[in-house]
Nucleic acid binder design. Structure first.
Lengths: 193, 193
DNA sequence: CTAGGGTGTTACCGGTCTGTAACTTTCAGA
DNA sequence: TCTGAAAGTTACAGACCGGTAACACCCTAG
């Protein structure tokens, strides 16, 4: 019941939303399809009428989560129209908000850790989505007038990825607490070149 | 058989070594105790005579892996006696070697991702071990004459942690490819202050 | 009112999981 | 050679897993 998503929308949407939430909280291998359907207020047969398999559901969840996350780029543009540097700082602030105390990190990264089979169908989807995210950040850095845009984007990516996983192992008081300071001074030093 | 560890040592040691290897390769939830004992050339009863439970085995594996990893600090001291700055550069080089193509990342971080129950007994062990590693890197930075030793150590930690998890999601050609360059220029900029 | 697709229900399959019981075998040390 | 502890063997319990079959129901479009 703690994971209940009781809105009366269509079963497929409820399953997708509930699965995203439960995969995020408890991990992919930590949640069974029975638990998902029960929390979504439906049943296993309905799930398998909309999704080929649990793997298929996993993939759709990752796509949905990534699609939701990608909307922040529009928010940045709306908040700071044309000001790409301000948008980059907004990215840092938004990223730091992902490091709240009980964070479970990035769903795609977590999935990559959990799904160890090298030929798992979700792995190429994860790679695709992560590469798309990377390109967006590179473009933002470049448009903000940064000389070595790729290097700054990649460094910021690794810092955030590291912070999100560090949160889960050492907690919020660990190295991830300094993320904003690291990111900001990094941007400053790249701008100075 | 691919995971076989056939040396004729004592069963407990074989189980521990085999479990470390299999947990690392296939993940904790991806390996059952039956598979471990079979690969270790023993049986389940013997495992449960030496370890209270699978959780206990997990903890012992993490401790053993961390103990093995902590020996690199002695290697650094042996290779560059007294030269802490050279040891810091050696750390960067050693860290980059962890980013080889098929890397599965840090066992502790991966375990933290997989074991989502907040009260899982392994979680406090992971935190302890990670904090110990952090303190060693901070001490190295400080002894190398870096002003803001904690900040540099934490930044390097996040970069490495991020690189190791990024390898698993986007692969070796992703942002992690630039790790050495990032780390070195970071050290240089901290030394310049 | 009726037809039919979407949904719910129940039961089941074969497999895997952690963990245990009871018993036999091996083997080193006295 | 005898003894006793460590290790191996077999079988099992009880739970959970992903996935399917067969059937009853509801509810809306015609």
């Amino acid at each position: 019941m703690t994971d209940g998503v009781a809105e009366r929308s269509r079963p497929r949407d409820r399953i997708l939303e509930t699965a995203q939430d439960m995969f995020h909280k408890h991990g992919i291998k930590g949640v069974g399809v029975d638990a998902i359907t029960e929390a979504a207020g439906t049943n296993k047969m309905t799930l398998y009428r909309h999704f080929e398999s649990k793997d298929d559901l996993i993939i759709e969840c990752l796509r949905a989560t990534a699609a939701k996350a990608s909307r922040i780029w529009d928010e940045f543009e709306a908040e700071h129209p044309g000001d790409k540097l301000a948008q980059l700082h907004a990215w840092v602030r938004k990223a730091s908000e992902l490091l709240s105390a009980d964070s479970r990190g990035c769903d795609m990264a977590n999935a990559a850790v959990e799904l160890t089979e090298t030929d798992h169908p979700a792995r190429r989807v994860i790679k695709e989505l992560k590469e798309a995210q990377r390109e967006k950040l590179v473009a933002l850095c470049r448009d903000a007038g940064i000389g070595q845009a790729e290097l700054l984007a990649d460094t910021l990516s690794l810092l955030l990825e590291g912070a999100r996983v560090s949160m889960q192992s050492v907690g919020a008081e660990g190295p991830s607490a300094q993320f904003v300071r690291m990111a900001e001074s990094l941007i400053a030093s790249f701008r100075a070149r």
